[in-house]
Design a binder for these strands. Sequence first.
DNA 1: CATTCGTCAAGAGCAGTGCTCTCGTTTTTT
DNA 2: AAAAAACGAGAGCACTGCTCTTGACGAATG
Lengths: 231, 231
Amino acid sequence: MTASRTARERVRAELTREITDIARRQLATDGAGGLSLRAVAREMGMVSSAIYRYFPSRDDLLTALIIDGYNALGQAVEQAEAACPRTAHLGRWLAAGHAVRDWAVAHPHEYALIYGSPVPGYQAPQDTVAARLRDVTVLGAIVADAWNAGELHPPAVPEPPAEVAADADNIRALMPGVPDDVVWRAMASWSTLYGWVNFEVFGQFNNTIESRRAAFDHALRLAAAALGLAT
Amino acid sequence: MTASRTARERVRAELTREITDIARRQLATDGAGGLSLRAVAREMGMVSSAIYRYFPSRDDLLTALIIDGYNALGQAVEQAEAACPRTAHLGRWLAAGHAVRDWAVAHPHEYALIYGSPVPGYQAPQDTVAARLRDVTVLGAIVADAWNAGELHPPAVPEPPAEVAADADNIRALMPGVPDDVVWRAMASWSTLYGWVNFEVFGQFNNTIESRRAAFDHALRLAAAALGLAT
DNA sequence: CATTCGTCAAGAGCAGTGCTCTCGTTTTTT
DNA sequence: AAAAAACGAGAGCACTGCTCTTGACGAATG
């Protein structure tokens, strides 16, 4: 009912934002495990207990950061993909893939929060489902557009087994009109994409792959080819 | 020089083993963040400071667990693959892949330690390099054997760019005699494999994919096909 | 055999953490 | 103006990793 923002509400929003900003900085330097409410409070010149007026627990603060991360990654992917001509399906795939990697490399700890090992004792509340699928929604649209344009020509084999048909229906919500085989090929391609980014961000390529952007680009093209997405 | 084990050495080895066992149990239930030296000591009926006689710091205990994890995963993959006929390259690939997934699903927190987000503030010492590549060495041998047997027929495009040639040499150590294109296809296939396992173990498939083993099996076959590994 | 020396468990203690509760104060609502 | 809600500060609890000192035990050496 109250569309007018009282002074208290305004300063509360301000402080909430300041808390998440400082927390995000801490996250960027020390990782999720190093996020300390007391340190945030100290940096704000507050007493630690005052933070609990804004976030009832450390996990709630973490949840806010996770949702922000989902949205930041999703927005980065959306923007990169939106800059491509609609019919350049391979170009859109490459742009979206590089956007994922670029964001992950720039924000490794935030990326770890969303695609890495779950934080112990913490489980994502339902609030995150809305933001969680932004990146993958973009990828699904690319696959669906390519399929509906008749530009997807995957090989005939191997075919998915019958028992995964029900699961395919769940995933198809992201790429309407696409047959089961393509659904699973899309999943495999995403797996290649995010698996590669995980390898790189989590340090598995150290002392092994140096030309990381070029190597990733090639992996992206291999994944597109496996999908049946031609040049 | 001393090949004889004194009583003291024996009890020390015994206690060290007991510590890692209890720590592994804690890891399995509470994850890496929940690993507490004091809790381990409590469970052993010791005082917390006594643990430091055996592991100078929490990170050292964690390192021991990580090395154990590498070896456990590596051994599981080696055994599963060794049970296959040498010439059944696709069968070996499927067996090794399922071994990775089965072990990861059975030991999610240990898997997270190995292939998940790195523990904050912790970086793996050089001791781990020996054990770290056991699983991927098996996978490399399969690719090399299939190639040398002339059973690998990857499509001609896309070709890897020139700038990643030096990196391919590093990776080729795991699969001698294999050309650059196949090296990168192998990397992409591993990416699919571990990316999929990450998705599943880290909870991204919750409420989406239920027939997990079958779905993974199909993903493995898609990855094999992308590699050029026929039936 | 006796003594020295290294190893060990125990305990106290430090600095840090998440979180709870209470106590005045201030701001909003009634 | 009075009641209610929100707020910051502070003390405190239980927990953590880690350090230092103390005293006891066992093993190799004289």
